[in-house]
Design a binder for these strands. Structure first.
Lengths: 260, 260
DNA sequence: CGTCTGGTTGATACGACTCAAATTTGGTGG
DNA sequence: CCACCAAATTTGAGTCGTATCAACCAGACG
């Protein structure tokens, strides 16, 4: 069955309130009540300015955050100043279900763009999981996928060349945005600077620059004005040896056309 | 095969049946009943020969595994043959609570040594979480720590030099073994080959060899016959910029002597 | 004892880094 | 609408950490 989101360019008319549902529905169908519960829990939100921290290393985590709009990143920093973006958040992503069992954050979460995040209390999470088993199940899926993505990043940084690595990251982000209805036809918003890309891929921004030029020269992508166009997804997947299995979109309940 | 416990006479009294408890008790005190439940769930186990897969990429996960004895690794492989160990398992580690919500494995789990693993069914897991809230809480902690370790690996491979990276990994493994009572006084069993270390750190085995020699020359470690001795933990932590916060051992309930 | 796995050494190559400067872009206020 | 500034991107030249390739060695084991 075709998702309403794929066909209609104005998908954002759904609004950010249901972006959580659209992410979790990549895993399983949710009932009207499930969606209402997610919407309810997204009611309490706040905005973070671009380039500000949502939460910093050492802080005591008190809530679960859910990205409603904008991009964010987790990052870690070495005493000598070296910085690594260890993961990225796009709309629909939860920041660590159940984090509050930990005493303190071992990393920071920073806003890439201006960010709209839902702030969910432990009590709301407990209520959600007590009353909505499908959501509980979907949240488990979300956590497992997050872990799988983290492993793939370890793998990506460890084994792929700069060219492959960058191509791989662009595809991943495109696909993740696609599942929440924010990317179609190879095109999506792409607010990362070359420096962000460098920190996410463990390259220098100079090398990212030259490598992006290569990807452009090879007619694989266009990237300007914070807009990414993947020109040839199959070839991109080939050169970066992209295997989408780690995104675990292959569930019976997923949008059958989530990936083109 | 020699037990890792032989070095310390008292330690083996814990036995492998409660290794899960000793890991989870790094987070919270468990009751006698909790420990009994973990022991019960560890009753059904099997052995895997060294260098064989416990489960392979593409397989449908049906159980949760819990390492009772021996070391294992998760690894991923590129079509061009490049291999990366993305994480390591030591006794007391669970292999993905709730994995079975996924359709298929996105990576393989291989035995480094001969391995003794508990095989836990979904039903047993459900019973455990339904009846034992402290265990449920502790399992969440375990999942969050596993994710934190994965991020640290991304960070480690991305930002640290070969020398720092290896030192960091050795400390991490020492500390993880220490929390389950299998490492003391800077000493522990260390069954990884230099090739394993290479695959885990994204270096070549040649470079691992030379870098280990440097660590030895600097009187930071001794490593031979599958035995690691960290000679100067504070200095090791200094050179590798090791910050133990990501292991989240700072809970009120933890063994106060978990880290020396 | 030969074979095999794991560890060690040496010589050479290259992908990505560093440093430094120039250029372009996007936003802001006059 | 232009002038200005800061941020982001681009270019060039030189260097370095780690990879590659190819032997060789030591101990374990059947």
């Amino acid at each position: 069955m075709m998702s309403p989101l794929t066909a209609i360019p104005g998908a954002s008319s759904f609004g950010s309130g249901t972006v959580a549902a659209s992410k979790l529905e990549a895993f399983t169908r949710l009932s009207k009540d499930d969606r209402a519960a997610l919407s309810e829990v997204s009611r309490n939100f706040r905005y973070i300015d671009a380039r500000r921290d949502l939460i910093s290393e050492g802080d005591k985590p008190r809530h679960v955050h859910l990205v409603l709009d904008g991009w964010a990143c987790r990052y870690k920093q070495l005493p000598d100043g070296k910085r690594q973006i260890v993961s990225l958040f796009v709309p629909g992503d939860f920041c660590d279900v159940n984090v509050y069992v930990l005493r303190q954050m071992d990393h920071s979460i920073g806003a890439i763009t201006r960010l709209k995040v839902a702030v969910i209390t432990p009590e709301e999470m407990n209520a959600l999981t007590a009353q909505r088993p499908r959501i509980t199940q979907a949240l488990w899926w979300h956590e497992l996928v997050t872990a799988a993505v983290q492993r793939e990043w370890t793998f990506n940084i460890g084994q792929r060349s700069a060219y492959e690595r960058l191509a791989h990251l662009l595809i991943e982000l495109y696909m993740r945005l696609n599942t929440v209805g924010r990317a179609y036809n190879g095109r999506c918003d792409f607010p990362l600077t070359q420096n962000d890309l460098a920190e996410a891929t463990s390259l220098t921004s100079v090398h990212v620059n030259r490598t992006l030029q290569e990807l452009r020269r090879d007619r694989l992508i266009e990237l300007e004005r914070k807009q990414l166009q993947i020109l040839d997804l199959p070839r991109m997947m080939g050169v970066s040896m992209f295997n989408a299995n780690y995104l675990h979109l292959d569930h019976e309940g997923r949008h059958s056309d989530a990936i083109e």
